[in-house]
């Protein structure tokens, strides 16, 4: 997770001036606070006591913040879980039917709740998106650090970071008016589907993977490249045989983070995927994801009905998958450090 936050404030050049004034403020504020109590030589005892008091205040303050955070997180997990599990325990839908069933008709007679089309849709779009974005990101990162560092730092990096800031509705809109017609003109079908979703998502996760790849490329030990060149390697041999293997572990972290982000993205995907609740037979046929079906259906259900609860079950699947992704990232990071 660290890696995702690090690159966000522009290039290293941008980060410094931004950080300096930000650091200055709390410092001077702290000095003012400590001033009257610490700066009184006549009564050292009292000053010590008030210092421990302010120490306590600080501790209490941070503790409260942390407590609020933890309570929020846990209550959210609890809320989603209780609602989501109610489908199975209160409404009696079978778990295996939910996870493996392929028929989704919550309002049918009898209703059926097979979520497999959405689960496969989510996995297919996000993994495909990562497969498109990973090589692009690696090439972009190599370009920015190895081939044209000046141009990369000054132009490419801000542009790629800009991509991260574009709202997802814009991505969806562009996808709908550019990607979908393009796919429709080449492949059979409407153009809406997993392929369109994956393409839109791949652009959205490009910044995540690229910034992690760029970071790890610029943190490579200098000797690594020189060692390779000194043995008579060409530039391409050096990139493919010594740089790529060295950054692969952290690239993988970036890819998993990208998949996690793609997995959770709702709006843009929903706009281009077609939203039919079936497992599509091709990448160019209308499909659905967990997120798209939740956003589409949540307005049309009544609280505490099975139709509503089953949406929470879908959300629970999303939540669990997020945990899994975070776990994988942790694992990869620990392995890379060793």
């Amino acid at each position: 997770m660290n890696a995702m936050r690090q690159p966000s404030p522009g290039g290293p050049g941008d980060a410094k001036p931004a950080a300096a004034p930000a650091q200055g403020k709390p410092d001077s504020a702290g000095a003012k606070k400590g001033g009257p109590s610490a700066g009184n030589p006549a009564r050292p005892k009292r000053s010590r006591r008030s210092r421990t008091a302010s120490e306590w205040q600080g501790k209490a303050y941070t503790l409260i913040c942390v407590a609020i955070l933890i309570v929020t997180i846990f209550s959210m997990v609890f809320f989603v879980a209780s609602k989501g599990l109610a489908t199975f325990f209160t409404n009696g839908v079978s778990v295996s039917e939910f996870l493996t069933g392929i028929k989704w008709s919550p309002d049918g007679e009898p209703p059926s709740f097979g979520a497999l089309p959405f689960i496969t849709g989510s996995f297919a779009t996000s993994i495909l998106a990562a497969c498109i974005a990973a090589p692009l990101s690696f090439c972009a990162a190599v370009f920015m650090t190895e081939l044209m560092p000046k141009f990369g730092k000054r132009f490419m990096q801000p542009v790629i970071e800009l991509l991260a800031g574009i709202p997802s509705v814009v991505y969806g809109f562009v996808g709908l008016s550019v990607v979908v017609p393009f796919l429709r003109s080449i492949f059979p079908g409407q153009g809406l589907g997993i392929a369109a979703g994956a393409i839109v998502l791949s652009i959205m996760i490009l910044p995540t993977i690229t910034s992690i790849a760029t970071d790890s490329l610029s943190n490579l030990p200098r000797g690594l490249k020189e060692g390779s060149y000194a043995l008579g390697a060409t530039r391409w041999q050096t990139i493919s045989r010594s740089i790529l293997p060295a950054v692969l572990p952290s690239m993988l972290t970036g890819v998993v983070l990208g998949i996690a982000r793609a997995f959770g993205e709702a709006l843009a995907v929903q706009m281009v995927i077609g939203n039919s609740p079936h497992i599509p037979r091709s990448l160019f046929e209308s499909a659905s994801t967990l997120t798209s079906v939740i956003t589409l259906s949540m307005g049309n259900t009544v609280k505490d009905t099975v139709q509503n609860n089953v949406l929470w079950s879908l959300a629970l699947v999303l939540l669990v998958m997020t945990f899994v992704f975070v776990g994988i990232v942790r694992l990869l990071e620990r392995r890379a450090r060793r």
Partner: peptide
């Protein structure tokens, strides 16, 4: 080189 620089292999 001055610093040993084996590849991470």
């Amino acid at each position: 080189f001055q610093q040993p620089n084996p590849f991470p292999k």
